[in-house]
C-alpha cells in the first residue's frame, strides 16, 4: 500500500472522510426533480401567458396583414415574458443535463425537445382558461407582479390596436367607438387590408391595426371582431374626441 492509499484509509478510519448516506442522494435527487418540475411549470406558465397576452390584445391577428402586420406583431409581442420563459427553459436544460437522455443528444436536440414540451404544455394550459380565471380573480387586488401582468393583458391594448363598434361611415374611412368609449377616426387607404367579402357598416364590431395619432388612426389592417369579446376597458380618466367634433372635422 502506498502513500496515497494509506493516507486515505487513515482518514476513513479516523472519520475525517466518510460516505454520505444513501438518503442524502435520494433527497438530492428528489429536490432536483422538484426543481425540474417547478422550473418546467414556470417556463410553461410564462409561455402560456405570452400566448394569452397576444390573444387577449388581439396582436395575434396582426400577423395576417403581410409584412407590416408581422412586424407589428413582432414589435408588440411581450418579449420580457417570452425572455423569462426562455430563461427558465435554459435553466431546465442545465438541470436535466446531468441525465443521459439529455447529454447523449446534441444540445440543439435537447433544447428543441424542452421547447416543444414547453410549447405543448403552454397550449394545453391555455385550453384550460387558467389565465382568464386567474386574471378575473386578481382583478381588484394588488398582487405583486401578477396584477400588472394581467392588467396589461386584459385591460390594455398596445398602441395601434383598436377594437370597437363602427358608429359612422366617412368618405375615407369610418368613426369607431372604442372599448374606452373614445371616438376615433379611422382612415382607410389603398394599402389597408380590409375583411374580404364584407362591406363595413355602422354597428359592425372591428379590430383595427394602424398608426394612431390622438383621435386619428391610419389603418393597415381591419378585421371583424367577435362582439362577445369586447371588453369595457377603463378610460384612465381620458375623455377624448367628441363625436360631434369628429363629425365636424370629417364630413362624410
Amino acid at each position: 500500500m502506498n502513500n496515497i492509499q494509506e493516507k486515505i484509509l487513515n482518514k476513513i478510519q479516523s472519520g475525517e472522510v466518510y460516505m454520505k448516506p444513501k438518503w442524502h442522494f435520494v433527497l438530492r435527487t428528489g429536490l432536483l426533480l422538484c426543481g425540474v418540475v417547478i422550473v418546467l411549470l414556470l417556463a410553461v406558465y410564462f409561455l402560456s401567458f405570452a400566448i394569452f397576452f397576444m390573444h387577449q390584445n388581439g396582436i395575434w391577428l396582426a400577423s395576417d396583414f403581410g409584412f407590416r402586420g408581422v412586424s407589428f406583431f413582432v414589435m408588440s409581442s411581450p418579449w420580457l415574458i417570452i425572455s423569462t420563459s426562455l430563461a427558465f427553459i435554459i435553466l431546465l436544460y442545465v438541470l436535466v443535463h446531468k441525465y443521459s437522455f439529455s447529454y447523449k443528444r446534441p444540445l440543439v436536440y435537447s433544447m428543441l425537445l424542452i421547447v416543444v414540451v414547453a410549447v405543448i404544455g403552454s397550449l394545453l394550459m391555455n385550453k384550460t382558461f387558467m389565465h382568464q380565471r386567474l386574471g378575473n380573480i386578481i382583478e381588484g387586488h394588488q398582487v405583486p407582479m401578477l396584477s400588472p401582468m394581467y392588467r396589461g393583458a386584459m385591460q390594455e391594448r398596445p398602441e395601434g390596436v383598436l377594437v370597437g363598434t363602427v358608429v359612422e361611415l366617412l368618405k375615407e374611412g369610418f368613426v369607431i367607438k372604442s372599448e374606452k368609449d373614445e371616438f376615433i377616426v379611422v382612415t382607410v387607404t389603398e394599402k389597408t387590408k380590409l375583411p374580404p367579402d364584407i362591406k363595413i357598416q355602422s354597428g359592425d364590431t372591428l379590430i383595427v391595426f394602424g398608426d394612431r395619432k390622438g383621435d386619428y388612426l391610419t389603418a393597415f389592417g381591419v378585421k371583424t371582431f367577435d362582439k362577445e369579446k369586447l371588453r369595457p376597458f377603463k378610460n384612465n380618466g381620458k375623455q377624448n374626441g367628441q363625436l360631434k367634433k369628429v363629425k365636424e372635422n370629417n364630413p362624410s
Binding site: 502513500n3 496515497i4 493516507k7 472522510v17 442524502h24
Partner: peptide, 18 residues
C-alpha cells in the same frame, strides 16, 4: 498530481453510495 488523485479518491468514497 498526487493531490488531485487523492482528491478524486476522497470524492469517490464520499459519494460511493450514490
Amino acid at each position: 498530481i498526487d493531490d488531485l488523485v487523492q482528491d478524486v479518491f476522497i470524492k469517490t468514497y464520499t459519494n460511493i453510495k450514490s
